[in-house]
Write a protein that binds this DNA or RNA. Structure first.
Lengths: 187, 187
DNA sequence: AGCACCATGTAAGTGGTTACATGATTCC
DNA sequence: GGAATCATGTAACCACTTACATGGTGCT
């Protein structure tokens, strides 16, 4: 108990500031592009937290080349910020809090026509196949051989593999489940 | 856009009232036992919503045998409630909002010792193996042959299969990822 | 008597999304 | 000029968890 219900947004932001200074806008885009399939943040969280990170000395505002045009305000992580991030990462991960709406609707499948459940599964397959294409496209750009495995690429590959094989698994499950439901409908 | 950010708790509750009248306490326990691996609700949501369901005519308070002892207040779903539940189920499921803290920590793996990431993966394997045992125990109680497949059992099996094969897949992924990280550490 | 569990509920606080406002820049 | 996108921010609102209060029941 006890260690949860703290915002992980702070650490998501610090994590993305780790590689290079970024603006709030940059951070949002970076999250969408790289970890978007298992994480998301909104501007309504990002901007206030960036401000707070500066207050707490975990990040600092960069005064960029053109102070006159105040658009694009970049932030850099501080040593204190790096330490705090590392400390969070070292804590046990929290597996709780998953919620799967598709499964819930499926679980209540007896209360609607079986076709409704089948339609949900078909929609899910379409959705997952699109994601699969995206993953495969991204995966093709990564080196497959061990020699070129830098730490960065390894961790990227690890999370990507999760998405890739997880999506394949989801499609297989959905297809099998449709088969099961069609069998039921025949009787 | 637009269809989200409505509480799904209402429908989770209605769904569990569908099979039989239950108390708030019953609902919580039923959720934990049956859909706990992909859904959860807290009393702080359940009790106020039950009250609201009655106000909206989606459920009604049962006056149980012993009105003197007011403990254990059961609720029954109404026709209006059933209709509303069915309507919700028929809407497209929302796949968004997944957040996976383990993957986020792993994604930031370059900022900590590789052992930290490996430890997280080992912990995850332990966690998932416990879940797997639970799933397998439950799975063993279900009939495997098609003849005994009632609708109820089919939908139960569908969600259970998701958990079962998903967990197996997670373990495999975690083991492979550990292998990849150990390879990296050797160099 | 004391403990575990059954059972209902509320208040406070937090994490997060959405919608809106605003304006600069780039490119056709 | 107009559209798309870059970019920053805020206010309102909501869903949800946590912690706490309260008391009954059943067992040893």
């Amino acid at each position: 108990m006890s260690n949860n219900r703290k915002s992980r947004t702070v650490y998501a932001i610090l994590g993305f500031l780790c590689s290079k200074p970024r603006s709030g806008y940059d951070i949002k885009k970076a999250i969408e592009k790289s970890v978007g399939f298992f994480w998301s943040e909104s501007y309504g969280q990002i901007y206030p937290i960036l401000k707070k990170l500066v207050e707490d000395g975990l990040a600092e505002k960069l005064q960029d080349e053109l102070p006159s045009s105040r658009k694009r305000q970049r932030y850099a992580i501080t040593d204190k910020g790096r330490k705090q991030l590392a400390h969070w990462i070292e804590q046990d991960a929290d597996y709780r809090g998953f919620r799967n709406e598709l499964l819930l609707k499926l679980f209540f499948g007896t209360t609607v026509d079986t076709e409704v459940s089948i339609r949900h599964l078909r929609d899910f397959i379409v959705h997952e196949k699109k994601r699969l294409e995206m993953f495969e496209g991204f995966h093709a750009t990564l080196p497959g051989n061990k020699e070129q495995m830098t730490p960065n690429i390894v961790f990227l590959t690890a999370t990507l593999n999760y998405g890739l094989s997880g999506t394949q698994h989801n499609i297989k499950w959905a297809e099998e489940t449709i088969g099961m439901l069609e069998e039921l409908d025949k009787q």
